Computed example of a mutant assay.
Amino acid sequence: MMRRLGAEYGIGVADAHALWKQELAAGKTPESLLLNNINHPNDYGHGVYFSAFADLLGD
Rank of each mutant, 00 (worst) to 15 (best):
W20T: 08
V48W: 00
L19W: 09
I11K: 07
A14T: 05
N37M: 05
D59M: 07
F53R: 07
G10D: 05
G45K: 00
H40P: 00
L33W: 03
G58W: 08
E8W: 11
G6A: 12
D43H: 09
G58L: 08
I11S: 04
Q22F: 04
S51P: 00
H17R: 12
L24Q: 08
A25E: 13
M1V: 12
A26G: 13
N37W: 05
N36V: 06
D55Y: 01
S32F: 00
A54G: 04
L19Q: 12
D55R: 14
V13D: 02
L56Y: 09
G45D: 03
A25T: 08
G47W: 00
A52S: 13
G10L: 06
K21Y: 07
R3E: 15
G27V: 01
A25P: 01
N42L: 04
Y9T: 10
H40V: 10
A52H: 06
I11P: 02
L57E: 13
M2D: 13
N36T: 14
M2W: 11
L56I: 12
D55C: 04
A52V: 09
Y49M: 12
Q22M: 09
M2T: 14
G45M: 01
A7K: 14
W20D: 06
N39H: 10
L34V: 00
A18K: 13
V48E: 01
L57P: 05
I11C: 08
Y9K: 12
H17K: 11
S32Q: 07
I11H: 06
G27Q: 03
G47N: 05
T29S: 14
